[in-house]
Write a protein that binds this DNA or RNA. Structure first.
Length: 945
RNA sequence: GCAGGGGUUGCCAAGCUUGGUCAACGGCGCCGGACUUAAGCUCCGGUCUCAAGAGGUUCGAGGGUUCGAAUCCCUCCCCCUGCACCA
């Protein structure tokens, strides 16, 4: 161990040692229980960014800890290497997406290596590797066989700039998730996966996994289950036409006064045809089709066009007008709504606007008047004004059930569950993805590529331009003979959504080199599911739903037996940094504006923390940080600055503070190694105290409370050692054995430093390969571990604190420096009193009657003491509830305070900066400063002269 | 509007699930001292207020429960995130 702390001198060395020893390679066969630690595999941009650093610092600490606690840990890494950035780069700068991707992977890998993560690279998976994506194609064929994959002509989201269709999940507020441009609607033939088959299971099994609440909420939202009824309204005068409406409120059926169809609903045309409003409807339909969902959401004006026809309420036989409304969504439910203005505010407004009747068919509790409604009552209530027998008086679920029963009896409707989630559109009109293994034959239709012909590789004879799908520029790719009839046919040119790749890569990790199968059942059954999954919140509703779906679908193919891919999910928070901010404009500006006034309103700019981004320029380059401080310091900062799930602020000063701490640990360890065989009374304390720290640390690591555990390992243990030194400790053998265990605690967060200490203290081999083996069985959790040794030291620290406080006060009075201190410890009977109090309190004695009990005790019988007991008890009563369990334990020990303080006289004189110190029991010496009356157990009277 | 998560002492941030351990961990910043030729290094101490110690006022605001509340209950305000005319 070198004298000076220079991480650059040793970090790379240990990284090589780990690699050479192969200790991060997870064997398939093991006696140990398995542990699957996983981070979301990254898209290979050319450089590691701070998000990667945070993500993997967390995962690596968990993986290293689990290895040390005796698990067979699989901690793989790979790259989500298909996708548009590489293709766009190829178009812009020339080259091939494959070259660009390979180059980026090589570059980012060297960055990762510098951090010292313990990934098992033997299991590396890359999406763009034909040995990987051939299984995408294979799964696709299996899904096709099982009816889980299908092709249909549908109205889909089209992103012009990206030149491809998008899944619903990939459209946010009407904009493309990738490029933020507006998405338009197009009718196209596209491939879908039937994720809706699994909607109910995806919803239900959220209960079985530990995901953060907000992620579960997000997924529930996205799946959007609603229970209700499908009701069929016959069109008056046309037996062939029927309007189906989905409602969650069948209990309001008697209040239906009109029905509204989405303008795009195909029924509209039939209904309005020949009517004077036909043109008006056509206009509305045109607008609706052009509008993106974004604009639709912004729609202020609710428009309705009467379609000239009437529907029949199936339960009442009433004739009600049919409208087309621009606010009805064609793709949700049936694209038509039964309108109940009395009990739906939106319908209420619409009815007012179009002068339609408003019927009250539910009674609001406490408001049973028959006055016309001023607003819709949307709650549940008793049914009233039903035009049929048997409904009035029912409410809530009962009412709904009765209506559904009636509809089902008369075959005019049925109970139904409606979902918001749609099937997953996986076609993409882009090059850099998995080709969909289908051949279109004029004679045979769509023919799957035979399994033995997989993989369908991407063609290289293509041109990358912004025009259309580059695959289509290949002169050879499309031309293929039909596998069935042998006639010339066309190959499908759509590729798969890259979320397909990330939907099962974790399963591939379990058997990454398998060239015969996607993975063997043995391997996946042994390793799956993922015990700990760590990644960004941005994948809460896409990746994390698709992967759950894929896992279930593949399970049903019989390939493995787990229901859920990820048992525990941790979403790490964002890394923020300060950026200039204008309060009045509420705009965050790029750091280039720092020091200037607001470019918009000229107000003075303040600072606020904002997500690190290129556009704001408030980023930090992790690699240069590593060069400056070493990887360990950055890792320590990441884990220490905030809890894993919280957002964290990057702060250069805080990083420096971590660097100082690292250095302090280094320097102290270095010094400890020079200690000789000098034992001291304080040795026992260190031994026991350190054991307590270890126990607490294990506890926090088990709960993945990384911040707390790092605080213990990197700060508290250090402070203990400093105190030990101040109290005269310098026991060489003790220090060496402690260093070995300490290195194990330092290892998950700062592995390079840990290896240095381990080696310097005489550890054999690598600490990264060591088991914890802490022998901490005795003394369970809690404060039972407080023995006299710890109690004495806690007492001493507390006296030192009190004495320091008093010194300040005293010197203000003395108006000069204090040179002499007198400590008058508590009389014995006060100790008896305190312990009696605690005893009564802990035995649930009614404290209001405690005085009587106390006065009956032997110590209160002594003549001159008896009179002082009530006053002292009053004082103690007040304090008693405030004592911590630790303090109580200390008080219960009945320490010989004078003895302990006298034993530490030199130490106290030194710490307090006085020349002399007198210690005795109050009453056994001069009552200096009249402080005797202040003396209580653990709170002596302290006076200065 | 609906859902999820927050508002803690200059800043960041623990604690609140299981009320007394809380004037409230820790880090940053700031102040003082030691060391040093000198430190921006390291170490020690301080950092709501009052004060030779038993006090006061604090944990978004206001109520309530309790011997006792940052912690439990109610109401309100504000911030973030997601979904959003979903029938």
């Amino acid at each position: 161990m070198e004298e000076e702390f220079i991480p650059a001198n040793y970090e790379e060395k240990w990284q090589r040692s780990w690699k050479d020893a192969g200790i991060f390679i997870a064997p398939q066969e093991s006696e140990k229980p398995k542990y699957f630690c996983l981070e979301m595999y990254p898209y290979p941009s050319g450089k590691m960014h701070i998000g990667h650093v945070r993500n993997y610092s967390i995962g690596d600490a968990v993986a290293r800890y689990r290895r040390a606690s005796g698990y067979n840990v699989i901690y793989p890494m790979g790259f989500d290497s298909f996708g548009m950035p590489a293709e766009n780069a190829a178009i812009k700068e020339g080259g091939h997406p494959r070259e660009i991707t390979d180059r980026n992977i090589a570059s980012i890998k060297t960055d990762f290596e510098k951090m010292g993560f313990s990934h098992d690279w033997n299991r590396e998976v890359m999406s763009h590797d034909p040995n990987y994506f051939r299984w995408n194609q294979w799964f696709f064929l299996k899904f096709l066989e099982k009816g889980l994959a299908y092709r249909t002509f549908a109205n889909v989201n089209w992103c012009g700039p990206c030149n491809t269709v998008l899944a619903n999940e990939q459209v946010h507020n009407g904009r493309c998730w990738r490029c933020s441009s507006e998405v338009e609607q197009r009718d196209m033939d596209q491939w879908f996966l039937k994720i809706t088959n699994y909607a109910q299971e995806l919803l239900d099994s959220l209960e079985d996994i530990s995901f953060p609440n907000h992620v579960k909420a997000l997924q529930r939202d996205w799946m959007g289950r609603s229970e209700g009824a499908l009701i069929r309204f016959k069109v008056d005068g046309d037996d062939g036409l029927e309007i189906e409406a989905f409602t969650t409120r069948p209990d309001t059926i008697f209040g239906v006064t009109f029905v509204t169809l989405a303008p795009e609903n195909p029924l509209c045309k039939d209904l309005v045809s020949g009517h004077e409003n036909e043109a008006e409807w056509q206009q509305m339909e045109k607008e609706a089709k052009q509008l993106s969902d974004m604009d639709r959401g912004m729609l202020k004006e609710k428009k309705g066009v009467f379609l000239g026809r009437y529907a029949i309420n199936p339960l009442t036989g009433e004739k009600i007008p049919i409208y087309a409304g621009n606010f009805v969504i064609a793709s949700y439910g049936t694209g038509s709504v039964m309108a109940v203005p009395g009990h739906d505010q939106r319908d209420f407004d619409f009815a007012k606007q179009h002068n339609l009747p408003i019927k009250k068919v539910l009674n609001e509790k406490g408001n049973e008047s028959s006055e016309p409604l001023e607003a819709a009552f949307e709650g549940y209530g008793e049914m009233v004004n039903s035009t049929r027998e048997g409904f009035d008086g029912l409410s809530g679920e009962e009412a709904k059930r009765a209506v559904i029963d009636a509809l089902e009896n008369e075959d005019t409707g049925n109970g139904m569950i409606q979902w918001k989630i749609r099937d997953w559109l996986i076609s993409r009109q882009r090059y850099w993805g998995t080709p969909i293994p289908i051949i279109h034959c004029d004679g045979c239709g769509m023919v799957p590529v035979p399994e033995e012909d997989l993989p369908v590789l991407l063609p290289d004879d293509v041109e990358f331009t912004w025009e259309g799908n580059p695959i289509e520029t290949s002169p050879t790719f499309s031309k293929v003979d039909c596998p069935t009839c042998g006639q010339p046919a066309r190959r499908e040119t759509d590729t798969m959504d890259t979320f397909v790749d990330s939907s099962w890569y974790f399963m591939r990790y379990t058997d990454a080199r398998n060239s015969e199968e996607c993975f063997s059942k043995t391997a996946s059954d042994y390793w799956m599911n993922v015990d700990f999954y760590c990644g960004g919140i941005e994948h809460a509703q896409m990746h994390l739903i698709y992967a759950r779906f894929w896992t279930k679908a593949v399970r049903d193919l019989g390939l493995h037996q787990v229901d859920e891919p990820f048992q525990e999910l941790l979403c790490q928070g964002m890394v923020n940094a300060q950026a200039p901010y204008c309060k009045s404009c509420n705009i965050t500006h790029p750091v280039s504006e720092r020091g200037n006034n607001c470019p918009h309103c000229s107000a003075e700019l303040s600072e606020r923390s904002a997500k690190m981004s290129k556009s704001l320029g408030n980023t930090v380059g992790p690699v240069s940080m590593i060069e400056q401080y070493g990887a360990d310091t950055i890792r320590l900062f990441i884990l220490f600055a905030a809890q894993p799930t919280a957002g964290m602020d990057w702060s250069d000063t805080a990083v420096e503070s971590c660097y100082r701490q690292m250095k302090a640990i280094w320097n102290l360890s270095h010094e400890m190694l020079s200690w000789q065989n000098d034992s001291a009374p304080i040795d026992d304390w260190l031994t026991i105290q350190f054991q307590e720290r270890r126990k607490q640390w294990v506890n926090d690591m088990e709960g993945v409370d990384l911040r707390a555990s790092v605080m213990l390992s990197h700060y508290d243990v250090y402070s203990d050692l400093v105190w030990y030194q101040r109290r005269g400790g310098k026991n060489g053998p003790l220090a060496r054995s402690l260093l070995l265990d300490w290195a194990k605690m330092l290892h998950p967060a700062t592995p390079h430093l840990a290896e240095e200490l381990w080696a310097a203290a005489g550890g054999v081999g690598l600490v990264a390969a060591e088991l914890l083996n802490f022998d901490d069985k005795e003394g369970e959790k809690g404060y039972s571990g407080i023995n006299s040794v710890l109690a004495e030291e806690i007492f001493l620290q507390s006296i030192l604190d009190q004495a320091r406080q008093m010194k300040g006060l005293a010197e203000r009075h003395l108006e000069t420096e204090a040179t002499s201190a007198t400590i008058q410890c508590s009389e014995a009977w006060k100790g008896d009193l305190v312990r009696t109090g605690i005893e009564l309190l802990e035995s649930d004695f009614p404290m209001k009657q405690a005085m009587g009990e106390i006065m009956s005790r032997p110590f209160a019988q002594v003549g001159d003491v008896r009179g002082q007991v009530p006053g002292a008890w009053k004082r103690i009563m007040k304090q008693m509830y405030k004592w911590s369990p630790t303090e109580r334990e200390v008080l219960k020990k009945n320490l010989d305070e004078v003895e302990i303080l006298k034993g530490a006289t030199d130490f106290l004189i030194n710490e307090l900066g006085v020349n002399e110190l007198h210690i005795y029991i109050a009453g056994e010496g001069e009552d200096v400063g009249g402080k005797a009356k202040f003396s209580f157990p653990a709170e002596p009277g302290i006076a200065y002269l």
